[in-house]
Amino acid sequence: MLEASGICKKYRKKEILKDAELLVAPGMCLGIVGRNGCGKTTLLSILAGARKAERGEIRFDGKDAVRHPEVFRQGAAYVPQENPLIEDLSVLDNLKLWYRGDRKALARDLENGPAAMLGMNDLLRQTVSRLSGGMKKRLSIACSLAEHAPYLILDEPGAALDMECKSVIRSYLQDYLRGGGGVLLASHEMEELSVCTNLAVLRDGVLHPVSRKLSAQELVTYF
């Protein structure tokens, strides 16, 4: 279980997150929605260990991640909105980086792991800069899953992608959930949020659970 409580974050004097808390269980997909600039990206990056909060607790399957940063690496696979890839290297080289040079593990995953499921086998020799946006996003996800972390944290995974790519990513997320993984997803798109088992609105620095059956218009009223 991914547990977060009392998460606070300020940018200069502005309080972005105030005692935010959430719970993501295995097989659960929590969708986070909110206005632009409400702090979704900040919250996700804190939960992935990419940013530090002013205070709060974060635990992955009971292990304290704040005091032991390596727990973030083992527990969370973070896919930011912008693709964290080295553009002038090949797909294979980018994968090697996140697999920490472990060729055997990479070969296994290219055979029947996340990298294979995301279609990386056909692109290994291609330079990242020449890939489409959808392919780059798939590569980002494959790279983030190098350590087979049990919790996948995605920040607007479908942004600027075509419908086919979005569909592929949605299928993958459903497979991931069926495999027992937990997903934390920030999005503005209802189709993307349809994968989610739970929804929450981030407003005034706090997460407010809402029904996943709300329409877009109804959801906006909670912002």
């Binding site: 260990g49 690496r73 080295i86």
Partner: peptide, 13 residues
């Protein structure tokens, strides 16, 4: 390196 890549690399140690 870009901000996002840097953040991920830092998080990865």
């Amino acid at each position: 390196c870009g901000k996002v890549l840097r953040m991920k690399l830092e998080a990865a140690g």
